[in-house]
Amino acid sequence: MSVTDELKAAVQAQTNKSGDAGHPMEDFLRMDRIPHIWCPTCGIGVVVNCFARALEKIGIPLDDVAVVSGIGCTGRVAGYVKIDSFHTTHGRAIPFATGLKLGNPKLKVVVISGDGDLVSIGGNHFVHAARRNVDITVICVNNFNYAMTGGQMAATSPTDSILTTSPYGNFETPFNLPFLAESVGATYVARWTALHIHRQTEAMIDALTKPGFTFVEILAPCPTIFERRNKFGDGLDRLNYYYEHSEIKHGEPTANVDVGLRTKIIVGKFVDKDRPTWLDSMNSHLKRKLGDRFTPYEG
């Protein structure tokens, strides 16, 4: 019996003993893959919890949902959720999701991936999917670094943060993701931290139910690298930091919501607007131009 099997058996025994239906996440997760690979006090598991809760609250059948991830720590989310899920190549979750959504518009397609994956290597796709307003939801877990590869500087690392490829501190200017998302056309933009479980769940519900390219950024602790190297302590200390330094400002102009290394963190719902989605635009435009010759596309 391997160590993992032993642990699973122990968990099973204990779950049976409790005499109830088991952990509410068990229907949502591929339990044969739990425990997951994320470090103690990592925030990604919290985001998975909230995502599951959001889907549950919306009441959408899970067969109609697909999760697409790229590569990285957050890229592993696709492997743990028990719904149709794709663990694609580095940076290309969004174009894969675009194809999936356009291939079958009845699906609810959600991209859950990290900051490095979505806005660095995948930055171009992020920009264009938002510009086109493809009807997908993007949940970006931002831990300010490339964690899976050992903590390199990322496009989101605050100036002065110490990481393995910025050993003397980062001298670049990081992306302000809500600002980026808004300026390229996202219809919904919100930011919360891993600590804001109810707020982030609500934001996910908003994003999932709103047509168009919707974007939720979740700031999450990376205890092993970012927090340790930048003397934030562990993930719990970082949650406490979020607790003390977060300020909720709904509707704040996104240009003002940069995250510095030790500045306050502006969270909230920043953008909520309506624009026709790519598919709606295609159907209405071609109908207008081609009349009866056009075959409306429904998947």
Partner: peptide, 20 residues
């Protein structure tokens, strides 16, 4: 759909394939 580059176009089609 005209994608933003070949990286995107070569994976978007795979999404469409899995969609049927």
């Amino acid at each position: 759909i005209q994608m933003e580059d070949e990286l995107a176009s070569s994976i978007a089609l795979q999404g469409a394939v899995w969609a049927g």
